[in-house]
Amino acid sequence: MIISNQKKKDELLAALDGAERLFLVGCGACATACKSGGEEEVFQMQEWIESVDREVTGSVVIDEACHIMRAGRDLRHHRQAVEDADALLVLACGAGIQSISASSDKRVVGGLDSLFLGNIKRFGQFEEKCSLCGDCILNETAGICPVTNCAKGLLNGPCGGMEESKCEVDREIDCAWHLIYERLKKQKRPGVFARTVAPKNWDKRRKPGRFNIKK
């Protein structure tokens, strides 16, 4: 899921400059799990907005804010409250925010920063495992992604900064290449170590990404 975090209140206040009446939008999917934009957070945001002398015209928590058509439909169900607002304050990831901006000509204020595509370790703890690079090497790396888990995304083994199997960038984090090496050794196969990995094809991750299942 997309891991997101609420912006600091002073930053948010600056972004709300000139917007006195706000319609709030939350997301029932990732932002709910991250406790950044679910029902509870939308409610707390409403209280905060009123505490800084602004008005809330209404709110909605969209099932999945990244679903552009659904977001548009939910906004239409709240047409009057949306119409009455100076801006829509969206507590969803960057994709969700843009579903809203694609569905309304109103000013849109994003209340969250989107951090990464994350796995849930346990409640409230998330870890990045996949960078969505479009060119997956996991089958050769014992199911551990070096593009993401190596701070430098190296493809041919650890850098010189590996110390006691830890990463040079953060000594709390295991060196991804050490993990790959240990797991492949356990599986008694050479995996990625059998070859020199060629430079990555970043053209597979050309922006903006587009994918059509029918093609």
């Binding site: 430098k152 041919n156 083994g157 010189g160 040079e168 960038v169 990995v197 060629a198 430079p199």
Partner: peptide, 26 residues
């Protein structure tokens, strides 16, 4: 390969690492 940018005087810089040292040799 190079030290990660976070060690230096521009920790906010985006590290590139389009290649690694082995690929650069190639």
């Amino acid at each position: 390969s190079g030290d990660h940018a976070r060690f230096g005087d521009h920790p906010e810089a985006r590290s590139v690492f389009d290649l690694d040292s082995v690929q650069l040799l190639q």
